[in-house]
Design a binder for these strands. Structure first.
Lengths: 108, 108
DNA sequence: TTTATGTGCAATTATTTGGTTGCGCAATAG
DNA sequence: CTATTGCGCAACCAAATAATTGCACATAAA
């Protein structure tokens, strides 16, 4: 629980993915979140800490309660990478198209 | 290196993400892949194994060489989750719209 | 004020990870 | 046939992870 802290590592854990989906509905306190899971409040709290550290979540103190809410923008990090992947893949198919085109040209 | 095997865990590692991007260009052998990284062939091989187990990669034996190539379809697992996330988020904003609409109505 | 509640934090532990080294084996090259 | 090359696999290791337990400390309720 020390060094790695990026969105990809954050969503690697199924509980954290579930927390993210849960919080799309709105901000919740650690206790409220923990109720949705089998794990203890402290375990959930650690996940919240990790998610907060990589800026997927933001805390908002209200009296003695802390409301965790989504920073949806951060999820774009994943989308960005996926987009890059798709672009590269598209490029590859472009090259394939070029090859096919060459074959067609040679044939005649 | 035993049990967990899903796409999210697979892309959590930066080396594995790099391998995925690298293979968008086309199939490569473990040695060819390893040349692109600092880690040993065996280390890379382990990553390939993980990526293969979760079906992001597929092997194709050719003589004593093994060509690893992408199963791009598998990446949709990530996209699917992201899509679900965005849908839920959109729903939330719909509800916000409803609230704002109500406020507007009450005001007059 | 006293008690209960909501939460973070530290220490401990079991498990998983990512990596290295060394081996064996099949396919190819000489 | 012999040497080399390309790989996977097993054993081992350090570091990271996930979860528990036990506190401490505020804030809010009695």
């Amino acid at each position: 629980m020390e060094v790695r802290r990026d969105v990809f590592q954050a969503i690697a854990d199924p509980t954290r993915r579930a927390i993210i989906l849960l919080l799309t509905v709105g901000a919740l306190t650690p206790n409220a979140i923990a109720e949705h899971f089998d794990s203890s409040r402290q375990a959930v709290s650690k996940h919240l800490q990790i998610l907060t550290e990589c800026e997927i979540l933001k805390q908002e103190q209200q009296g003695r309660e802390i409301h965790y809410h989504l920073n949806a923008a951060k999820m774009q990090d994943i989308e960005k990478w996926l987009e890059q992947f798709k672009q590269l893949l598209a490029k590859r198919f472009d090259q394939l198209d070029v090859v096919l085109e060459q074959l067609k040209t040679k044939r005649k």
